[in-house]
Design a protein around this nucleic acid. Structure first.
Lengths: 150, 150
DNA sequence: TCAAATTACTTGCAATATGCAAGTAATATA
DNA sequence: TATATTACTTGCATATTGCAAGTAATTTGA
């Protein structure tokens, strides 16, 4: 069998470039990390700081400060959880949603460009494969989750 | 069609965790970035500093310093190119090769674990898909290469 | 019922990483 | 052979990181 890791490594590196390129979409210029944060806040429903930090595998003190700068940029807002006032729920501002949507648009444009080099069958196979892969990674929890800290 | 970007985002994030987890394989504890550098130096044949920096999309002054610390750790060595003495060729030391091999081993173990949740047909399909994807990304050069700087 | 433990998050600080500007040395160009 | 270009390195100012140690709110347990 060929070198599977090689295939994965190259693919994820390229996808990383894609993500990086998309950070300057829609007139906004944010960092790759900030783009990931916006994405994850958008994806979850009113997540807490801890939840997002966990999802992204970031140290919580670092993440606390990343959130602060996104708030300063008026892309994210923090709302105290009425049920537990220790918790702050994160959500995107209107501007934050706009930026996230611009990035998403750019990403999907790029992905369509990539898929334009395949026929419909290949495209379908690839998408199903990624789904399979995600399911398999979810099943083998110990290796594909956030790196152990402490 | 479902959200393709979502699938990719989750997959690459999980693969990133995998990579991070593998950095402490074989008794060595290096950063994710250092792991990527070792991988890329190993992959290319005696690459120059510029070539690796380009491949990884890193600023060359930053990369110059990253190489310096890997040399201090005795994982990488720099050899002047006899044909062009401006150029320094990078290669792994014996210890560097050992560390790179340990990480590779750990990565492949994890990947096998992931594939153990699939049957042979699915596994085959997934691997062929990633290959297809890499080829397609290579074709659409403008979006999947190192982000423009300057 | 209330002191002690836990949880969610924030700040101080010291160490590290970043990238631009400006360097050096070697090679290519005109 | 002077001038540009290339490959790489350093100075410096800024940004990012994570541990230790905080605060405030909630849970636990005697």
């Amino acid at each position: 069998m060929e070198n599977v890791r090689e295939l994965f490594q190259i693919m994820t590196r390229r996808f990383g470039f894609l993500n990086k390129n998309c950070c300057s979409a829609g007139g906004c210029d944010i960092s790759l990390i900030q783009s990931h944060i916006l994405y994850e806040i958008d994806r979850q429903h009113k997540p807490s700081i801890q939840q997002v930090a966990e999802a992204l595998g970031t140290d919580i003190t670092t993440f606390s400060r990343q959130v602060q700068s996104l708030i300063k940029m008026k892309l994210v807002k923090k709302t105290p959880d009425p049920d537990d006032r220790r918790v702050n729920l994160l959500s995107l501002t209107t501007e934050g949603k706009y930026v996230a949507a611009s990035i998403d648009q750019q990403m999907n444009d790029y992905l369509n460009e990539i898929f334009s080099h395949m026929n419909d069958f290949e495209k379908d196979t690839v998408i199903r494969s990624i789904k399979l892969l995600n399911e398999a990674m979810a099943k083998s929890g110990q290796c594909c989750s956030t790196p152990s800290r402490g």
